[in-house]
């Protein structure tokens, strides 16, 4: 009996040690799997030759070249304009929707809540196709018929598409912030002589601001590197950064693409970090 116990304990601790080692190794493998490709991409953006496989020496040339690449700069400008406008619009709409849903209970509110969350899980390709169909089959013909105005796919339609997929994200983040919101603070303000308007701007808005900014940064990031919805709503004339990179890749990978991707990566990561920090602040 005693011996049996001892063996079992011995085997147990061996298994435990093996398990620990395996778990540790697994963690390292996953890190490697996730980040080695990105690391390679970054490293070769500094390569001193056209090769993306053989390291020949350090250089910043590819980065410098980015700034004299006309089509690239146009794409970058498109991206920033679309991200900026869609972020502003989606943030305003998402925030107002969250406030309305929080403040005015009505029948079926929870169903509406779910409907607002839904676009987050709808496959993006479905969203892209549906937007494309909407513009081509409904919006453009209607515009033509009513105002005799001919419109084609381009920056405005991309922006509308981005607003559509960004609203739910802003909504979710602001709504979460409203859940912990102490309504007696607003009542205290009203008690002290603030009407509804001043109560909103002096109390509600400043307290929601971290959530709103967090939502806005999230929206900006999502818009900057969106590919699918953009591809369906872009037409041919005005690519964004991700579309432009994709078109370059089809002609062959150069370290210039690495450099461009590295810039995008840094920008996105920075925005996400700021967004998370803002959301954590109370």
């Amino acid at each position: 009996m005693i011996a049996g116990c001892a063996t079992r304990r011995g085997r147990g601790s061996l298994l435990l040690r093996l398990g620990k080692t395996a778990l540790g190794a697994n963690a390292w493998l996953i890190f490697a799997f996730l980040y080695i490709p990105i690391l390679v991409l970054i490293v070769f953006s500094f390569n001193d030759s056209r090769s993306v496989a053989h390291w020949t020496g350090f250089s910043m040339d590819w980065y410098l070249r980015l700034f004299s690449n006309e089509p690239l700069l146009r794409a970058a400008r498109n991206s920033l304009v679309i991200a900026g406008v869609s972020t502003l619009a989606a943030t305003a709409m998402g925030t107002l929707t969250a406030l309305g849903m929080d403040r005015y209970p009505f029948r079926l509110r929870s169903s509406f809540d779910a409907i607002l969350y839904l676009p987050i899980v709808i496959p993006e390709i479905v969203m892209g196709i549906s937007l494309l169909l909407f513009f081509n089959l409904a919006f453009f013909p209607l515009l033509q018929a009513l105002l005799h105005f001919r419109m084609t796919l381009g920056v405005p339609t991309i922006t509308v598409g981005h607003i559509a997929f960004n609203i739910p994200f802003v909504y979710v983040i602001v709504r979460a912030r409203l859940v912990g919101f102490d309504r007696t603070l607003e009542q205290a303000a009203q008690d002290l002589g603030a009407n509804e308007w001043r109560t909103f701007w002096r109390i509600t808005f400043p307290l929601l601001l971290p959530g709103i900014l967090g939502g806005a940064l999230m929206a900006f990031t999502l818009s900057l590197d969106d590919f699918l919805v953009t591809a369906f709503t872009a037409g041919t004339a005005s690519p964004t950064m991700p579309l432009y990179i994709y078109s370059l890749v089809r002609r062959g990978v150069t370290p210039e693409i690495n450099a461009l991707s590295t810039v995008l990566l840094a920008a996105s990561m920075g925005l996400v970090v700021i967004s998370l920090v803002l959301q954590r602040r109370r």
Partner: peptide
């Protein structure tokens, strides 16, 4: 409305503005 009444209230949880 509350902001036009000449009364003021001290809430049980104080409701101080945290910002």
């Amino acid at each position: 409305p509350p902001y036009q009444r000449r009364v003021n209230i001290v809430f049980q949880n104080y409701a101080l503005f945290p910002h």
